[in-house]
Design a protein around this nucleic acid. Structure first.
Lengths: 345, 345
DNA sequence: GTTTAGCACTCGCGGAGTTGGAGTGCTAAC
DNA sequence: GTTAGCACTCCAACTCCGCGAGTGCTAAAC
């Protein structure tokens, strides 16, 4: 069942040609490759075998072959020659990451547009989540008529806020009391723990120390809800799907673009609880509209924990090698940036 | 030079038919309208005149007529029969705006997707700017190793934040001193005034009262920079451009989509310093890629001042009447929501 | 003078027929 | 096992043609 070296050679040649030209590749064309020393006839025989085994398909009898999903899978798993990002991309990336930026959000957003312009595909970036960060301070700022803004600052300087409603006649003391309890109990606690048992403990503490229990509870529940904030999704180069010949069919393109528009859906394309690089080819994506697409993703980390995802969406006919290199480089650089940033530049 | 009533009738019939069918409309088809009581021959004569005057064009000799840009312009300026949103849209809108939501950002974002699904076009919404809001409180929260987060809360509860770098050896007192001066001087000041003469005055005050002048200045300049924050841009239904027959040409569609992706550019499509409804038809848009598009926009307000924009982008062949009604309704409802929201729900 | 019927003409569109080329599978020779 | 040769397949591009929708013009009717 294993492929002979020659078959592997031919398979990768087919894939690489097809990725470049977007057209079925025939035996004559392959024979011109310098690594390939056999005659077209031999190649034809091998290709017929590869087709029989399901690695190649023919759009119609007597046209060249194109890789099947199984073919791509084998290629990604066994034939990708690891390496470094190519010259120009490397320069571009190095340049990008030496620019000094210090707002995380801005960096993440720019990574998204950078990835899409470098790969000429659509990029998807999930902003870093804050689960591992710890509460630094909670503030409660009244803004009149029984309303206030609750502000939570994490140890890395993330700021989240939520609006809270109070009873009309709450007093400044009450507000202060609430804030004090919250800060006493929550400073230093990781965001991911806010929801859990702490909630009960805090509710109890509040009921003991604070007069305005309902109001305090309102604040507490708002504060805890930051846990539920979805990671922000940045999508770059969505228009690039239209430049792929496989999406000149407007219907397909539209279905993909509408998917991309619903930020929520996109989140689910990323493998949960998996770090490092993943490649989802065609039907492996489970989402119907992505049957002809490959989604390649990886994670970036802070203090050794993956905190966000970066990914590239393109046709199954994508330059796996190049994009993989770019993603890995970017992931590493982003991780490094985050560490530098969170330890004080 | 003025059009006769009959010509106006025919012009609007042509436009309304064309908007519906997206195909050149001929004399026979028009003659079937019940408002139109003339024979096809008469209509042909009138259409020939309208073409000569530039209100209609013919894609090729002997095909129906389509409206020219000038035709649309005349239609929008003189023939649009004002009215109310149609039944189903009205119900939809009413329903949308009675849902109780209380985060401004969320409302604005949802308005964007609502507009696009209701109009089946692309919607563009600029979030409310804060120029008219006043500073409620400024906080400065150290997060270790010479860094801090500056937080600015406005009277309506907007929260903005920025990171600040200090000298390593700054003391808590210094930080407090800075915050105090800033709050003393800035609370109650409208955001729009932060940049102006106040800056100089404050710098001077800080130099007198605060030891760490450079650090104070760093904070001040970060705080003042919130003025420069661009309004957030929400784009909804970008994929809808592909469902318009005029954009089945992938090239065109792509150029529009890439434009939409650069949020910054989009901002410039909105007329500055103009309130109320504007319609930019075809070449009136000045941006090359929008030659076949119409951008219809209006503003929404808070306390009588326009604070944001909503708009719809579609082909010049759009349902001007319907979209205009929807925009006006939405603008009013959004204004009302904002007032209700900022005066305490 | 305005409106209308009639008619010849134009032009794009879709289907049918044709051709050329790229590519295959098979067979037989090396 | 490899390769040259050959017959075969099928798409893509092209041309040709007829149809139909629509026009402009003219002459008659109102």
């Amino acid at each position: 069942m294993m492929l002979t070296p020659r078959q592997q050679l031919i398979l990768s040649a087919v894939i690489e040609d097809y990725v470049r030209m977007a057209e079925p590749v025939g035996s004559r064309a392959l024979a011109k490759h310098e690594e390939i020393q056999f005659s077209p006839a031999t190649i034809r025989n091998e290709m017929a075998d590869l087709e029989e085994m399901g690695y190649l398909t023919q759009p119609h009898t007597s046209s060249g072959r194109i890789p099947s999903q199984k073919g791509y899978r084998f290629y990604v798993d066994n034939l990708l020659r690891q390496g470094h990002v190519d010259r120009s991309a490397g320069a571009f990336l190095k340049d990008f990451f030496t620019k000094r930026i210090d707002e995380v959000e801005q960096v993440v957003r720019e990574v998204s547009t950078m990835l899409s312009s470098l790969t000429r595909q659509t990029s998807i970036v999930l902003g870093p989540n804050m689960y591992t960060e710890k509460v630094r301070k909670i503030e409660l700022i009244p803004i009149g008529s029984g309303r206030a803004v609750a502000i939570l600052v994490t140890d890395t300087g993330h700021v989240e806020n939520a609006h809270v409603h109070f009873s009309e006649d709450i007093r400044v003391d009450d507000v202060e009391a609430i804030v004090n309890v919250l800060n006493d109990k929550l400073v230093g606690v990781p965001i991911s723990k806010l929801r859990s048992n702490l909630y009960a403990e805090l509710a109890e503490e509040l009921s003991r120390t604070v007069e305005r229990f309902e109001d305090a509870l309102a604040v507490l529940s708002e504060v805890c809800q930051v846990t539920d904030r979805e990671e922000t999704v940045y999508i770059g180069g969505a228009a690039n799907v239209l430049s792929q010949p496989e999406f000149h069919d407007v219907e397909k393109a539209q279905s993909i673009l509408s998917l991309l528009e619903q930020g929520g859906t996109v989140t689910s394309w990323f493998p949960k609880d998996e770090r490092g690089l993943t490649v989802r080819i065609g039907a492996e994506n489970s989402v119907g509209a992505l049957q002809d697409c490959t989604v390649m993703t990886t994670t970036y980390s802070l203090y050794g924990h993956p905190v966000g995802h970066i990914g590239v969406l393109g046709p199954t006919r994508m330059d796996y090698n190049r994009i993989m290199q770019i993603l890995q480089y970017t992931s590493a650089a982003l991780t490094e940036f985050l560490t530098r940033w969170s330890t004080g530049n």
